[in-house]
Simulated assay, not measured.
Amino acid sequence: MYLLGVYLGNSLIFGSHSSGFRSSRWVRMRVWALSILFWLLTVLLDRHVERVSRRTCNLPYVTMVLADNLQVILT
């Protein structure tokens, strides 16, 4: 989960090494889109695959944590 978070943060803010910082509006739109995508994925996985479980750290839990953290970043 940590490595996935670091990857998403670096790709959202820095992108490629030559572009430097990206505009905050573009980053905010991407974070909104990813947050909505992860929430929808969490709901689908929770209903059709398996329940969210922190103990087993399954895929629905990982998507829920990513969606929650992205949502916190936006506020």
Rank of each mutant, 00 (worst) to 15 (best):
M1K: 06
Y2M: 13
L4V: 12
L4Y: 07
G5H: 04
G5L: 10
G5K: 11
G5F: 06
V6S: 08
Y7F: 10
L8Q: 05
L8C: 13
G9A: 10
N10K: 11
S11N: 15
S11Y: 10
S11G: 09
S11V: 15
L12F: 15
L12N: 04
L12D: 02
G15P: 02
G15A: 05
S16F: 12
S18R: 13
S18Q: 09
S18D: 14
G20D: 06
G20W: 10
G20T: 03
F21E: 13
F21H: 07
R22H: 12
R22S: 09
S23W: 01
S24I: 11
R25E: 13
W26S: 11
W26N: 08
V27S: 03
M29G: 07
M29H: 07
R30T: 05
R30C: 14
V31L: 05
V31T: 10
V31M: 09
V31D: 01
V31G: 04
W32A: 01
W32L: 10
L34P: 02
L34Q: 12
L34N: 12
S35W: 00
I36L: 15
F38G: 01
F38D: 02
F38Y: 14
W39Y: 01
W39P: 02
W39F: 15
L40A: 14
L40Y: 04
L41Q: 06
T42C: 06
T42A: 02
L44H: 03
R47F: 08
R47M: 11
H48M: 05
H48Q: 14
V49A: 06
V49Y: 12
V49F: 13
E50R: 03
E50G: 04
R51D: 08
S53F: 01
R54P: 05
R55N: 12
R55D: 12
T56G: 04
C57T: 09
C57G: 08
N58D: 03
P60Y: 00
P60M: 07
Y61R: 03
Y61T: 02
Y61H: 08
Y61W: 08
V62K: 01
L66S: 02
L66F: 07
L66R: 00
A67Y: 02
A67N: 03
D68Y: 03
N69I: 06
L70C: 03
L70S: 03
Q71T: 15
Q71N: 14
Q71F: 11
Q71W: 07
V72E: 11
V72N: 09
I73K: 07
L74Y: 08
T75V: 12
